[in-house]
Amino acid sequence: MPTTPTTTQVADARIPAAHPFAGHLRRAQALEQAAPHRTWTPEDGPLPSLYVSHGGGPMPFASNDWLDPLHDWARSLPKPRAILVVSAHWESAPLSLSADRPADLVYDFGGFDPLYDAFRYDTPDAGDLARTVAGLMPDTQQVHQHTRRGLDHGAWVPLKIMYPSADVPVLQLSLPTEDPDELLALGQRLRPLRESGVLVVGSGHMTHGLPFLTRENFTQNTAPAWSVDFDAWAADALARGDVAELARFRDAAPGMPYAHPTVEHFTPLFVALGAATDPAAPVTTMLEGYGVGLSRRSFQAA
């Protein structure tokens, strides 16, 4: 018996067939039909926590250098029961949650093909996850839940690539501070979610010095020295599990402040590390290289 297409499927059907993301959707659907993505069970143990470099605006939709690795990463893990994402693009205190099932996404980018303003990502109701997250916070921690706020592009762009069927509940948690220690503590409070099949994601960009990029960085994808140096420093600290060194990034990291003239694209990393079983354990790099000169380094922590 035919089923009624979802709003996401209707919007996806309008993407021109030659667009790279339309090809991505066809490949993902064929793979799902051949080998359905297995849903997490308690026997799988805790899911890892993730730090994802999410690209510039909707640019990842047009590049197989983003599409294939992100989708392969998602398929390498059991499909989560739900996803909680902390994005660089929602800095808000007190701690806040997005709507359980918002009517619209946040299209917080400009200067791109209007096609992307019609993209949809209508995921199932995340009310149960919202109540669980609020319950994990201390009694002294006020948690505000918005009734309408949707996912911003730091959340929905990578997740639409990773889980294009839009069949996993997604909730966004605001980034309430720039302090690494406080964000590690926040991640630690979220750690029990992983044991129930919830994927905890920190979404940012390993380097994000947009004001300092040149035309050559965009046209030839060359990486400036400050981006390369910062990325190498972060990769070394992550490989050694040196959380204290990472927390000193403002003063210790080469390439600063060019790599992060504002720090909100780096600090979600501390939520992901805090949610790990051992924040000081070496992480597993899942994506590296550069996009328009910015480091795409992304990892998962067990």
Rank of each mutant, 00 (worst) to 15 (best):
G274K: 12
L246C: 06
P94W: 01
E178S: 15
G150R: 02
F230S: 10
P158I: 07
R27G: 00
E288G: 08
R297G: 04
Q145P: 11
A281V: 08
L238K: 00
L84Q: 04
H54E: 08
R240D: 11
L67S: 03
V143S: 07
D167E: 11
R215S: 09
Q172E: 10
T214E: 12
D44Y: 01
V263Q: 11
L273Y: 07
P224T: 02
A18G: 14
D229L: 11
D100P: 02
A130D: 06
R189V: 00
P169T: 09
L238S: 09
A62W: 03
Q9R: 15
V133H: 00
Q9A: 15
V85K: 00
T140R: 09
P16V: 10
A247N: 02
A130G: 07
S76I: 14
P69K: 09
F230L: 15
R148M: 06
T207E: 06
Y107F: 11
F212A: 08
L287D: 04
S165P: 01
A235F: 02
Q142R: 14
A74F: 01
A275C: 11
H260S: 08
P282H: 08
F218K: 09
L97S: 01
L50P: 00
L70F: 15
L105P: 12
F112E: 08
T207H: 06
T284E: 13
G110S: 15
A103C: 01
A30C: 09
R26H: 14
G127T: 13
I15L: 10
P257S: 13
H37S: 00
S96W: 03
V271G: 00
H205T: 05
R101S: 14
P60S: 09
P2N: 12
A99C: 06
D12N: 11
M137T: 14
E91W: 03
P102A: 08
Y163H: 14
H24S: 02
D242N: 15
R297F: 08
S174E: 00
R189I: 04
V52T: 09
Q141H: 03
L31C: 01
S298A: 06
F21A: 06
L199H: 08
N217A: 05
A126P: 04
L175R: 02
M137Q: 15
S295I: 11
R194W: 06
A62H: 03
R250C: 04
D278V: 12
P268T: 05
D152A: 11
T285W: 10
L136M: 10
A82D: 11
L246P: 07
V157P: 02
T140Y: 14
P114S: 13
P78F: 05
P78C: 10
V157K: 04
V243S: 02
A166W: 02
A88T: 13
P69L: 13
L47C: 04
G293F: 07
M256D: 08
V85C: 14
L151G: 08
L287F: 11
